[in-house]
Design a protein around this nucleic acid. Sequence first.
RNA 1: GCCGCGUUCGUCUAGUCCGGCCUAGGACGCCAGGUUUUCAUCCUGGAAAUCAGGGGUUCGAAUCCCCUACGCGGUACCA
Length: 494
Amino acid sequence: MNKIRTRFAPSPTGYMHIGNFRTALYGYLFAKKNNGDFILRIEDTDQKREVADALEKLIAIINWASFEYCEGVYLENGKIIEKGNFGPYTQSKRLEIYKKYALQLVEIGKAYYCFCTPERLEEMRQNQLAQKQAPMYDQCCLKLSSEEIKKRLDSGEKYVIRQKINTQGSTIFNDLIRGKVEIKNDLLDDQIILKSDGYPTYNFANVIDDHLMEISHIFRGEEYVSSTPKYIQLYESFGWQVPEVAHLPLLLNPDKSKLSKRQGDVAVEDYIKKGYLKEAIINFVAMLGWNPGEGSTQEIFTLSELVEKFDLAHVHKAGAVFDIKKLDWINSQWIKKLSLEELYEKSLEFFEEKEFYKNASEEKKSEEYIKKILFIEKDRLANLSEVGESNQFFFRDINFDKELLRWKDMSDDDLKKSLKKSLSVLENIIDENWTRENLEKILMESAGENRGELLWPLRATLTGEKKSPSPFECAWVLGKEESLKRIKQALGKI
RNA sequence: GCCGCGUUCGUCUAGUCCGGCCUAGGACGCCAGGUUUUCAUCCUGGAAAUCAGGGGUUCGAAUCCCCUACGCGGUACCA
């Protein structure tokens, strides 16, 4: 058996669509699972859609995700380079190759020159539509004599090359996910394989490259199912073996339409910016359309676990709605797994973009202080971008109404007593005993039966918030000096 | 329009190939209770799918067959 080789072949559009990202993931998982090769090829055949830096961004995301590939396009020291024996891996660098094969098809009568203008084509289509016919090329240029073709070619007239489709019978192929698919050939159009600008269409380039690069299994979106017979005819015209193909289900909006920008974020970059961990994004996206089956109830998977368990038999046929709530949960699970050091490294940038952080003192921006906050926040976070958001009182002076301090219906006197008690208890704790555990132990002991009477006013005093982490944690982070200061301030208000 | 693909709790899904163990399991979310000074975490429990609908086949169907509906995709010198 030939070696398993899969490829991820995106177009550089400026961002990584999450659905595309999943296609990359599945191709990667399948290759790794089968000790095969994973290749990154760039399909930049649409010059109109060129975007600056798109290629760099694309490769950066693949690297970020740790989808290791052994051939293709790489980013090294800010430069784009290629590695591998089947290059170039950028389609715009392979124009001569496509032309050669297109001409070869012309020679054997499986393709032909077409001089029709876009205007004529458009008019033709409108007419067909008006007569309720399927828009399809009318093969006008197929009737051209070889003399005339030569004459028009020689005169420099613009042309495209179209595939001459065999419209007899039907094409049957085995989809790795859907099983047998049958499509009648008379529905197939004589598609353009080489555009007038000399670039191939995707429909042609992908066939040539997949063959030349010895791709054994093709992973692509469901939207290509109906084009597959045309590709198969191409392989057959060349006498090439047709690779295995898996058409992946779509990712959907909550209203079940194809996942689109209008209804939320579609770029992987957007989710990174929102503070989702790569482990969570991969984990989540893997489960949209695939599951380990066999009654497994595991929800959290590492990349290598996915490699180990991935199986085409359990890839779904139907599209999956992208449910951000579940992503949040998966992300929170992954955040809990992070060490404090890792959490700090990953979340620092999210602190740095916030006003309350920028305005804080140097001491409060220190690694030590931030790490204390993170220690407390770790179990409360759904994503990194909300870090510190609900704990801003750690960074700035607080202001609040005295009523906030009152526990149930306690009197002002009792409130005062409560805070004074906290004050004296905390004053007596020496600096080296100012630990989270110790604060909890001592305060709980002092609180006795009616904990709320001591703990609620203290917590409200330290935070100025209705909701917050526990007073022990808050006092620990704020430190002795600041804690005492805040209690004294509150006492002044009563 | 035509063609293709799909359809199990609100969502992600198990089960479908090889009919009976499915009075359909898990997870997210939701609701309730517990732990708790508050929030969150955590724990326990609950509601939630007549398996799109209808016909078959069968002793028996979510599972096999047919039809219908609905959804999605394709029908480009876009990928």
